[in-house]
Design a protein around this nucleic acid. Structure first.
Length: 430
DNA sequence: TTTTGAGTTGTTCGA
DNA sequence: GTCGAACAACTCAAA
């Protein structure tokens, strides 16, 4: 009996239990609505992942507009997919399930792209964790299942939808994800504990795109990790992804709503010209500008730099975190709603296990620390390439060093730091 | 039951 | 120049 498989954010064949459940005669499809509202860079990256998956499916992956309509036309009795845990995905799957049910077709939803599905790790009293470290302990002690093999002997058939959109070649896909991990495991993983914060090095895994698109299952990675300090550090990063998915699952309003509600009452500014300067990487703070331009030119930003630019928007410009989160959503090809919203809320101080009120990043100090030679800044801010060495982090100190094209700092950090502390004081719990 | 110490990612100030 | 203390309030887990 044929089934229809609806690929969403699980664009892989191996270690995909939902796909294994779909049987031996499968119509693989993706849905055109997945592209709605996405920026060009995200459309390009998602459709590149689709094209890569299509090669593994012997060219049978097609693009459809409506799952229920397609399933009905093909006469299948069941549609299979992997579970979504974020609010938009949940409601989409509920809607499709209702549409299918009215046609007498089952929607079979398998587990999603987490070692432990959101909602499963709980405190002994049954409530969800609000602090990462105890979550990690419970998550680790509970453990996860072994990776599953790719399906064997499946006949893929075209559902007769449209051809996949073409686009620029992007290095993505399941095989690329596995190669990326192998490369990482051979080199950077050993120094991960030391180098992952260095913006000027390639010390991170570069697997965020693959994890966000489900080109690899996290437990496929976990199964290959030992217990060295660096391997445990990487495991903890994977656990952060699971923690934030869990937090969002329990608190769906926190996509754009405050996890800690009293922060909704804090005084914020909205200066459009400052927001635009931040977005365009023209704040006059080299480390911030390098990060924002890396985002614009590559669709990715180093995690350490994400914190620096986020802190700058929230604590130096006093702009609400949601504006920054939305900008990231438009430009990050590895966008993950749970990690994005809760990463921002952590920096803003309103999230789980939040950054203490006094932890305000100094964008200059952070530059010296995590781009010690200034190479990262020079790579992404061409106006500053004439300045050699670490001096690039404070171009205003150089008599002849400042390019006329590069802006002066748009704020005084020490003034805005004090302002941020004063505003936090106003919402202090008495 | 109550208490206690720790909690991803930091900065500043004063000794 | 280095170094340690101080900087909310609250959650969680262990004692």
């Amino acid at each position: 009996m044929s089934t229809l498989y609806w690929f969403r954010r699980d664009l892989r064949l191996s270690d995909n239990p939902s796909l294994l459940a779909a049987g031996n005669e499968v119509y693989p499809v993706v849905v055109s609505g997945s592209l709605d509202g996405l920026s060009k860079v995200r459309v390009d990256s998602l459709t590149a992942s689709w094209r890569s998956l299509n090669e593994s499916l012997d060219g049978n992956l097609t693009l459809i507009d409506d799952v229920a309509e397609c399933a009905n036309r093909l006469g299948v009795t069941a549609v299979h997919c992997a579970r979504a845990y974020e609010p938009a995905g949940i409601s989409e799957q509920e809607r499709v399930a209702r549409d299918l049910e009215s046609l007498g077709i089952k929607l079979v939803i398998g587990p999603g792209n987490y070692a432990l599905s959101p909602g499963t790790v709980r405190k002994p009293d049954g409530t969800p964790y609000r602090v990462y470290t105890p979550f990690f302990k419970a998550w680790f002690e509970r453990g996860w299942e072994s990776p599953r093999p790719a399906p064997v002997g499946v006949t893929w058939a075209s559902a007769g939808g449209r051809e996949l959109p073409s686009g620029p070649p992007v290095r993505v896909g399941e095989a690329f994800a596995l190669r990326t991990f192998e490369r990482f495991a051979k080199r950077a993983l050993h120094e991960y504990n030391e180098d992952r914060n260095r913006a000027d090095l390639s010390g991170t895994s570069h697997l965020s795109h693959a994890l966000a698109h489900g080109e690899v299952h996290p437990r496929t990675l976990l199964a290959q990790l030992g217990d060295s300090q660096s391997e445990v550090s990487f495991m903890k990063e994977l656990a952060w992804r699971e923690f934030y998915a869990d937090v969002l699952w329990h608190n769906p309003h926190t996509v754009e709503g405050y996890y800690e509600p009293r922060f909704a009452n804090m005084r914020y500014d909205f200066d459009e010209s400052k927001l635009v300067a931040w977005q365009q990487g023209k704040t006059g703070f080299p480390m911030v500008d390098a990060g924002m331009r890396q985002l614009m030119t590559t669709g990715w930003m180093h995690n350490r730099v994400r914190m620096i630019v986020a802190s700058f928007l929230v604590k130096d410009l006093h702009i609400e975190w949601q504006h920054g989160a939305r900008w990231f959503e438009q430009h990050l090809t590895d966008f993950d709603v749970a990690s994005n919203s809760h990463g921002w809320q952590w920096t803003a101080g309103c999230g789980t296990d939040a950054s203490p009120y006094y932890r305000i990043f100094n964008p200059i100090t952070q530059g010296y620390k995590f781009d010690p030679n200034g190479d990262y800044v020079r790579k992404y801010v061409p106006e500053l390439r004439g300045i050699s060495g670490k001096e690039v982090h404070e171009p205003w100190l150089l008599i002849d060093g400042l390019s006329p094209d590069y802006p002066a700092p748009i704020v005084d950090h020490s003034v805005e730091r004090a302002e941020a502390l004063a505003r936090l004081e106003e919402i202090k719990v008495v």
